[in-house]
Computed example of a mutant assay.
Amino acid sequence: MSKQVGYIRVSSVDQNTGRQLGEMDLDKIFEEKVSGKSMNRPELKAMMDYVREGDHLHVHELSRLGRSVIDLHTIVNELLEKGVTVTFHKENMVFVPGKEADPMQLLMFGMLANFAQFERSLIRQRQQEGIAAAKAAGKHMGRPAKLTDEQKVEIKGKLKQGATPTELAREYGCSRASIYNVKASKLVKAA
């Protein structure tokens, strides 16, 4: 029996998936909150393994399935080869296995796939510009350091006196790996 399957994706955990396929009656939904820049997406893989000949995959819009022209073509072609119909609702495109696609639809698919990839490139470029501007303004990037330089000196001294990494990790509220990193570091000289 054929199934109506949905694939929903947003790029980050704080984004809402509610606007995608919300009013459809689907048998199974695969939803994930990861970037579409890669094919290494657990729910995408699960969906590809799940669908069978005669199933119908519904995707809100083309860029939800992928951000790379090659990836989009690969995914859609694999689905069609499995006998799965693919519908992109926002673009009003339907790809049916065994049926030659309309040349205009193929042109639009290619153009929209290129736009999705272009948009991803713009996002990446803006991120890099923002990071460079923040660094130039002297802002610290990344997670704040768990240990101060003074604490590192203390830890080196306590290690020399026989304290164990487990004890020190508990005392300083950090991981043992952090203690081992301090122990191995050459930058901090023990007092």
Rank of each mutant, 00 (worst) to 15 (best):
I8S: 04
I70W: 11
E171G: 00
E23H: 13
G138N: 11
S2D: 04
L79E: 04
L57T: 09
L80W: 07
K152A: 07
G22A: 15
V59I: 15
Y7K: 02
M93S: 01
V84T: 08
R9K: 10
I29F: 00
L44R: 01
E53Q: 13
R120I: 01
I123C: 02
E23T: 14
V34G: 06
Q127N: 09
E129Y: 03
N181A: 15
G157S: 13
R41P: 05
L72G: 06
R124F: 00
Y7V: 09
A116K: 09
G157R: 12
V96A: 01
M47V: 03
A177T: 14
S63Q: 07
H140T: 07
I131H: 03
V188H: 15
T148K: 03
E32N: 06
G18C: 08
K28G: 02
V84S: 05
R124S: 15
I155T: 13
V86G: 10
V69Q: 08
G18S: 15
L44A: 09
K146A: 13
P144G: 10
M111K: 00
V96Q: 13
E91Q: 14
M47D: 04
K152L: 00
G83R: 07
T85G: 07
G6C: 06
E31A: 06
Y7P: 03
E43I: 06
E32H: 08
S175N: 02
V182S: 09
R67M: 02
T85Y: 02
M1Q: 10
V10N: 13
S63D: 14
R170A: 15
Y172V: 07
E78W: 09
D149R: 11
R176K: 12
L147E: 14
L72T: 01
E78S: 13
P165V: 02
F115W: 11
A184I: 00
K82H: 12
G54I: 01
D149I: 10
A133H: 10
L57D: 08
P97K: 02
F118D: 14
Y7C: 12
L106Y: 00
Q125L: 04
T164S: 15
K82W: 05
G18P: 01
K152H: 00
M48Q: 14
E78I: 14
E171I: 03
C174T: 14
A132W: 04
K139A: 09
Y50K: 08
S35Y: 04
N92I: 03
S175M: 01
T74M: 14
A136W: 00
H58S: 11
K37E: 14
